[in-house]
Computed example of a mutant assay.
Amino acid sequence: MPTRALVFDFDGTLADTESAVLQSWQAVFREYGAELPLDAWYAVIGTQHTTPAMFALLAEHAPGIDPEALRPKTRAHVLRLLEDLGPREGVRDYLDTAKNLGIRLAVASSSSGAWVNPHLERLGLDHYFDAVLTGDLHKAKPDPDLYLAALAELGAAAPDAIAFEDTPHGVTAAKAAGLTCVAVPNAITRNLDFGQADVVLPSFTAKPLEALLSR
Protein backbone atom coordinates (compact mmCIF):
# COMPACT_ATOMS: atom_id res chain seq x y z
CA MET A 1 0.00 0.00 0.00
CA PRO A 2 1.25 3.53 -0.70
CA THR A 3 2.52 5.65 2.17
CA ARG A 4 -0.10 8.24 3.08
CA ALA A 5 1.49 9.92 6.09
CA LEU A 6 4.88 10.77 7.58
CA VAL A 7 5.21 11.61 11.27
CA PHE A 8 8.37 13.30 12.53
CA ASP A 9 9.75 13.67 16.00
CA PHE A 10 10.96 17.22 16.60
CA ASP A 11 13.90 17.47 19.02
CA GLY A 12 16.96 15.86 17.49
CA THR A 13 15.11 14.70 14.37
CA LEU A 14 13.89 17.77 12.49
CA ALA A 15 16.51 19.93 14.23
CA ASP A 16 19.37 18.97 16.50
CA THR A 17 18.08 20.85 19.53
CA GLU A 18 19.22 18.01 21.79
CA SER A 19 22.88 18.94 21.43
CA ALA A 20 22.16 22.47 22.65
CA VAL A 21 20.05 21.24 25.56
CA LEU A 22 22.77 18.77 26.60
CA GLN A 23 25.47 21.46 26.40
CA SER A 24 23.34 23.74 28.57
CA TRP A 25 22.84 21.10 31.25
CA GLN A 26 26.54 20.22 31.20
CA ALA A 27 27.33 23.89 31.82
CA VAL A 28 24.88 24.03 34.76
CA PHE A 29 26.41 20.93 36.36
CA ARG A 30 29.92 22.36 35.98
CA GLU A 31 28.84 25.55 37.74
CA TYR A 32 28.14 23.34 40.74
CA GLY A 33 31.43 21.46 40.43
CA ALA A 34 30.01 18.30 38.91
CA GLU A 35 29.93 16.49 35.56
CA LEU A 36 26.63 15.36 34.09
CA PRO A 37 26.80 11.55 33.62
CA LEU A 38 25.87 10.82 30.01
CA ASP A 39 24.18 7.55 30.94
CA ALA A 40 21.70 9.57 33.02
CA TRP A 41 21.03 11.79 30.01
CA TYR A 42 20.53 8.86 27.65
CA ALA A 43 18.10 7.26 30.10
CA VAL A 44 15.60 10.10 29.63
CA ILE A 45 16.36 11.51 26.18
CA GLY A 46 13.28 11.56 23.96
CA THR A 47 10.87 11.51 26.90
CA GLN A 48 9.12 14.19 28.95
CA HIS A 49 11.29 13.54 32.00
CA THR A 50 14.54 15.25 31.01
CA THR A 51 14.21 18.46 33.03
CA PRO A 52 12.89 16.86 36.28
CA ALA A 53 15.54 14.14 36.03
CA MET A 54 18.33 16.67 35.54
CA PHE A 55 17.20 18.82 38.48
CA ALA A 56 16.90 15.72 40.69
CA LEU A 57 20.41 14.63 39.73
CA LEU A 58 21.78 18.13 40.23
CA ALA A 59 20.24 18.23 43.71
CA GLU A 60 22.41 15.25 44.66
CA HIS A 61 25.49 17.39 43.98
CA ALA A 62 24.05 20.68 45.24
CA PRO A 63 21.49 20.08 48.01
CA GLY A 64 19.07 22.93 48.47
CA ILE A 65 19.07 24.23 44.90
CA ASP A 66 15.88 25.89 43.76
CA PRO A 67 14.83 24.43 40.38
CA GLU A 68 12.31 27.20 39.76
CA ALA A 69 15.01 29.84 40.19
CA LEU A 70 17.32 28.01 37.80
CA ARG A 71 14.74 27.34 35.08
CA PRO A 72 14.85 30.80 33.41
CA LYS A 73 18.66 30.72 33.36
CA THR A 74 18.89 27.26 31.80
CA ARG A 75 16.19 28.08 29.23
CA ALA A 76 17.91 31.35 28.24
CA HIS A 77 21.21 29.50 27.79
CA VAL A 78 19.56 26.92 25.51
CA LEU A 79 17.85 29.59 23.43
CA ARG A 80 21.18 31.38 22.91
CA LEU A 81 22.72 28.15 21.67
CA LEU A 82 19.79 27.61 19.30
CA GLU A 83 19.79 31.08 17.72
CA ASP A 84 21.69 30.01 14.61
CA LEU A 85 20.45 26.42 14.44
CA GLY A 86 18.71 25.33 11.25
CA PRO A 87 16.91 22.11 10.31
CA ARG A 88 19.00 18.99 10.02
CA GLU A 89 20.58 18.58 6.61
CA GLY A 90 18.19 16.94 4.17
CA VAL A 91 15.04 17.53 6.24
CA ARG A 92 13.65 20.21 3.95
CA ASP A 93 14.18 17.95 0.92
CA TYR A 94 12.17 15.20 2.63
CA LEU A 95 9.35 17.61 3.45
CA ASP A 96 9.27 19.11 -0.05
CA THR A 97 9.19 15.67 -1.64
CA ALA A 98 6.41 14.51 0.67
CA LYS A 99 4.30 17.56 -0.17
CA ASN A 100 4.87 17.03 -3.90
CA LEU A 101 3.73 13.43 -3.54
CA GLY A 102 0.58 14.44 -1.63
CA ILE A 103 1.71 12.76 1.58
CA ARG A 104 0.31 14.26 4.78
CA LEU A 105 2.75 15.34 7.49
CA ALA A 106 2.68 15.61 11.28
CA VAL A 107 5.01 16.28 14.17
CA ALA A 108 4.79 14.06 17.26
CA SER A 109 6.94 15.43 20.06
CA SER A 110 7.19 14.73 23.79
CA SER A 111 8.07 18.40 24.26
CA SER A 112 5.42 21.04 24.89
CA GLY A 113 3.66 23.05 22.22
CA ALA A 114 5.21 26.18 23.74
CA TRP A 115 8.62 24.74 22.81
CA VAL A 116 7.88 23.00 19.50
CA ASN A 117 5.65 25.49 17.68
CA PRO A 118 7.87 28.59 17.99
CA HIS A 119 10.89 26.56 16.85
CA LEU A 120 9.00 25.20 13.83
CA GLU A 121 8.11 28.78 12.90
CA ARG A 122 11.67 30.03 13.43
CA LEU A 123 13.03 27.21 11.29
CA GLY A 124 10.51 27.94 8.54
CA LEU A 125 9.04 24.44 8.77
CA ASP A 126 5.63 25.08 10.33
CA HIS A 127 3.80 25.41 7.00
CA TYR A 128 4.68 21.86 5.98
CA PHE A 129 2.72 20.15 8.73
CA ASP A 130 -0.96 19.26 8.81
CA ALA A 131 -0.83 18.52 12.54
CA VAL A 132 1.51 19.10 15.49
CA LEU A 133 1.03 16.82 18.50
CA THR A 134 2.91 17.62 21.70
CA GLY A 135 3.58 16.17 25.13
CA ASP A 136 1.62 18.76 27.07
CA LEU A 137 -1.61 17.40 25.55
CA HIS A 138 -0.73 13.72 25.12
CA LYS A 139 1.19 11.06 27.00
CA ALA A 140 4.87 11.39 26.20
CA LYS A 141 7.04 8.75 24.56
CA PRO A 142 7.74 5.87 24.93
CA ASP A 143 3.93 5.70 25.28
CA PRO A 144 2.39 5.41 21.77
CA ASP A 145 -0.29 8.06 22.45
CA LEU A 146 1.39 10.83 20.43
CA TYR A 147 1.62 8.62 17.36
CA LEU A 148 -1.92 7.35 17.71
CA ALA A 149 -3.12 10.96 17.97
CA ALA A 150 -1.08 11.92 14.89
CA LEU A 151 -2.65 9.10 12.87
CA ALA A 152 -6.12 10.24 13.94
CA GLU A 153 -5.37 13.85 12.99
CA LEU A 154 -4.04 12.81 9.58
CA GLY A 155 -6.80 10.30 8.89
CA ALA A 156 -4.23 7.59 8.25
CA ALA A 157 -3.87 3.98 9.35
CA ALA A 158 -0.66 2.82 10.99
CA PRO A 159 0.36 0.51 8.09
CA ASP A 160 0.19 3.52 5.74
CA ALA A 161 2.47 5.74 7.84
CA ILE A 162 6.17 6.09 8.55
CA ALA A 163 7.68 7.61 11.69
CA PHE A 164 11.06 9.34 11.86
CA GLU A 165 12.89 9.28 15.17
CA ASP A 166 16.30 9.92 16.69
CA THR A 167 16.02 8.10 20.04
CA PRO A 168 15.21 4.53 21.13
CA HIS A 169 12.35 5.85 23.29
CA GLY A 170 10.83 7.45 20.21
CA VAL A 171 11.25 4.27 18.17
CA THR A 172 9.50 2.31 20.94
CA ALA A 173 6.55 4.71 20.81
CA ALA A 174 6.24 4.55 17.02
CA LYS A 175 6.44 0.76 16.89
CA ALA A 176 3.91 0.42 19.72
CA ALA A 177 1.51 2.48 17.61
CA GLY A 178 2.08 0.15 14.66
CA LEU A 179 4.06 2.48 12.39
CA THR A 180 7.10 1.63 10.32
CA CYS A 181 9.93 3.54 11.98
CA VAL A 182 13.03 5.05 10.40
CA ALA A 183 15.70 6.03 12.91
CA VAL A 184 17.90 8.96 11.92
CA PRO A 185 20.21 9.38 14.92
CA ASN A 186 22.08 12.62 15.51
CA ALA A 187 25.52 13.24 16.99
CA ILE A 188 24.18 12.78 20.53
CA THR A 189 22.22 9.55 19.91
CA ARG A 190 24.11 7.74 17.16
CA ASN A 191 25.73 5.25 19.55
CA LEU A 192 22.46 4.13 21.14
CA ASP A 193 20.65 0.88 20.35
CA PHE A 194 18.20 1.23 17.45
CA GLY A 195 17.51 -2.47 17.05
CA GLN A 196 13.74 -1.89 17.12
CA ALA A 197 13.80 0.44 14.11
CA ASP A 198 12.84 -0.87 10.67
CA VAL A 199 15.50 1.26 8.98
CA VAL A 200 18.45 3.19 10.40
CA LEU A 201 19.91 6.04 8.35
CA PRO A 202 23.03 7.99 9.30
CA SER A 203 21.38 11.17 7.97
CA PHE A 204 18.47 12.37 5.87
CA THR A 205 20.91 12.90 3.00
CA ALA A 206 21.94 9.23 3.01
CA LYS A 207 18.80 8.12 1.15
CA PRO A 208 16.27 10.31 -0.71
CA LEU A 209 12.67 9.96 0.43
CA GLU A 210 11.63 8.46 -2.95
CA ALA A 211 14.17 5.67 -2.52
CA LEU A 212 13.02 5.04 1.05
CA LEU A 213 9.39 4.82 -0.03
CA SER A 214 10.18 2.35 -2.82
CA ARG A 215 11.86 -0.20 -0.54
Rank of each mutant, 00 (worst) to 15 (best):
residue 69 A to E: 13
residue 157 A to H: 14
residue 69 A to P: 07
residue 180 T to P: 02
residue 125 L to S: 09
residue 138 H to P: 00
residue 106 A to D: 05
residue 108 A to D: 03
residue 51 T to Q: 12
residue 107 V to G: 10
residue 163 A to M: 08
residue 58 L to H: 06
residue 199 V to L: 14
residue 70 L to Q: 11
residue 168 P to L: 08
residue 27 A to H: 15
residue 74 T to F: 01
residue 89 E to V: 11
residue 77 H to R: 15
residue 210 E to C: 04
residue 89 E to R: 14
residue 14 L to A: 06
residue 171 V to T: 07
residue 76 A to M: 05
residue 100 N to V: 02
residue 26 Q to H: 02
residue 178 G to D: 05
residue 88 R to M: 07
residue 12 G to Y: 05
residue 4 R to Y: 09
residue 56 A to R: 15
residue 31 E to D: 12
residue 146 L to K: 01
residue 86 G to N: 11
residue 98 A to W: 00
residue 205 T to R: 15
residue 24 S to D: 11
residue 195 G to I: 08
residue 7 V to F: 08
residue 117 N to V: 12
residue 53 A to W: 06
residue 152 A to Q: 14
residue 41 W to P: 02
residue 87 P to N: 10
residue 157 A to N: 12
residue 179 L to F: 06
residue 112 S to H: 08
residue 10 F to D: 10
residue 179 L to M: 05
residue 119 H to L: 15
residue 129 F to K: 10
residue 91 V to K: 04
residue 75 R to L: 13
residue 140 A to V: 05
residue 131 A to R: 04
residue 83 E to Y: 02
residue 161 A to E: 11
residue 199 V to E: 00
residue 59 A to Q: 15
residue 24 S to G: 14
residue 58 L to V: 07
residue 142 P to K: 12
residue 115 W to G: 01
residue 93 D to E: 15
residue 117 N to G: 00
residue 206 A to L: 07
residue 116 V to W: 03
residue 209 L to F: 03
residue 125 L to P: 03
residue 3 T to W: 13
residue 95 L to M: 03
residue 17 T to K: 04
residue 195 G to W: 07
residue 80 R to E: 13
residue 38 L to C: 01
residue 132 V to C: 09
residue 24 S to E: 09
residue 12 G to F: 06
residue 190 R to S: 14
residue 57 L to M: 12
residue 23 Q to H: 11
residue 13 T to I: 05
residue 66 D to Q: 14
residue 202 P to M: 08
residue 76 A to S: 12
residue 164 F to K: 03
residue 112 S to T: 15
residue 81 L to G: 15
residue 101 L to N: 00
residue 58 L to K: 09
residue 57 L to N: 07
residue 67 P to A: 10
residue 139 K to L: 13
residue 50 T to L: 14
residue 57 L to T: 06
residue 202 P to A: 12
residue 82 L to G: 04
residue 197 A to H: 11
residue 5 A to K: 12
residue 55 F to H: 11
residue 167 T to R: 09
residue 136 D to M: 03
residue 23 Q to P: 01
residue 169 H to M: 08
residue 150 A to T: 03
residue 8 F to Y: 14
residue 78 V to P: 00
residue 211 A to C: 00
residue 117 N to W: 03
residue 2 P to M: 13
residue 99 K to I: 00
residue 162 I to W: 05
residue 144 P to N: 09
residue 86 G to L: 06
residue 214 S to R: 13
residue 174 A to S: 01
residue 77 H to V: 03
residue 78 V to S: 03
residue 79 L to F: 11
residue 114 A to F: 00
residue 85 L to W: 02
residue 97 T to A: 10
residue 133 L to D: 02
residue 37 P to S: 08
residue 162 I to E: 11
residue 156 A to T: 01
residue 155 G to N: 11
residue 155 G to R: 09
residue 28 V to M: 15
residue 194 F to V: 03
residue 86 G to Y: 10
residue 61 H to R: 15
residue 149 A to T: 05
residue 67 P to I: 11
residue 118 P to E: 08
residue 122 R to K: 14
residue 93 D to I: 01
residue 56 A to H: 11
residue 201 L to N: 07
residue 89 E to G: 04
residue 206 A to G: 05
residue 95 L to D: 01
residue 141 K to H: 07
residue 215 R to P: 00
residue 20 A to K: 04
residue 79 L to Q: 12
residue 206 A to K: 02
